[in-house]
Amino acid sequence: MVKDISFLNEEQKKFLMDYVKTKKVDAFNKVQKVAAIGYEGLENASSENMQLLIDEWVLIDYIDNGFVNNNTPCECGRPLRYQYIVKNNKSGEIKRLGVNHFEKHISLKKHVVKQIKKEFDLIDKEITEISEKTKAKWSIENEISYIPNDYKFNKADNIKKQLDMGLALSARQINYLIKEFNQKILSDNKTVNLPTHEVSNIDVYNYEEKKITSTVYSLSNIQKERIRELYNRGVKNPETICEFLIKNKIAPSHRYSTGKPKIFPSVCIFLENINGS
């Protein structure tokens, strides 16, 4: 966890602690199963299902005291700040360990422990990112330029709850939402054909209600290259791409009276061609 979260309220602190616990339990158990069967297609497996699949030790709980605490020792007696509680699926035995003693006390292989530590480190970095952004008064509008009004957040991932309580989102969560929004826009679109000369007269605010198919023109090779790069990185929202191009002086900043960039229709059409290719 991040060193200082004193600026957060109790609800926010509890949310982040629960978030870390859930993520670390999932990471520990998935790494073990992947190591055991050599199969990585387990991203959507629940923690409960993962525990049923693992033959031996599973992580069932995680404690962060905030400080080194004599009341939460490792099996060897060393006091811990972070205590990992594991259970043997065969015998039912429970052990309480520090992260550096997985190999010693439950005989996990070195490469498995190394991967578990790597996953734990990524989770801790994500929490640090969320906390630092929250402290800096982060706003979702600065990251995502367009959110469908009727988009329904997945209750299972708790992102809506996270936003409602005033916590920032991590880059991983933002990328996930952008992909979700793009998929929704594409699924809601209806295909229409427009003559090339009508492209500049598109009702840009209603673009999400229709798919536009036409010959792409007016974009330079450099602009097309940058759009493809963004698309391949998962950035597929046309408004986000337009603002990126403008901010980096790759496209002119001319806008319609509505505020939409004038390059927006061409970007939309080019994205449709990429998606259909």
Rank of each mutant, 00 (worst) to 15 (best):
P73F: 07
L52F: 13
N71Y: 12
G92S: 09
M50D: 04
V31L: 09
A35Q: 06
D61Q: 05
E93I: 05
E43C: 09
D55V: 03
G41L: 10
N49H: 08
E43W: 03
V86T: 09
E93G: 07
E40H: 13
A36S: 15
Q51F: 02
Y62V: 03
Y84F: 15
D64R: 09
N88S: 08
E43T: 10
L80H: 02
C74N: 05
S46D: 12
F102R: 03
G38L: 11
S46T: 15
M50V: 13
G92L: 06
D55T: 08
N70T: 11
K30S: 10
G98I: 00
N44C: 09
V31A: 13
G66L: 05
E48P: 03
E40F: 13
N70A: 14
D64S: 13
T72W: 00
I94N: 05
F102W: 04
I63L: 12
V99I: 12
T72F: 06
A27C: 01
I37Y: 01
V31T: 11
A36N: 12
V34C: 07
Q32Y: 00
H101K: 05
N44R: 12
N88K: 07
C76W: 12
N49E: 15
K33L: 15
S46M: 10
K30R: 12
E93W: 03
A27R: 00
N88P: 08
S91P: 07
D64I: 02
S46W: 06
G38P: 08
N100F: 07
E40C: 08
L42S: 06
C76V: 07
I63D: 11
N88G: 08
Q51P: 00
G77V: 06
R78G: 09
Q51N: 15
D55M: 07
G38Q: 04
E43D: 15
Q32L: 13
C74F: 02
N89L: 07
E40Y: 13
S46F: 06
K87A: 06
A35F: 08
Y82C: 07
E93Q: 15
K30F: 02
I37L: 08
V31C: 11
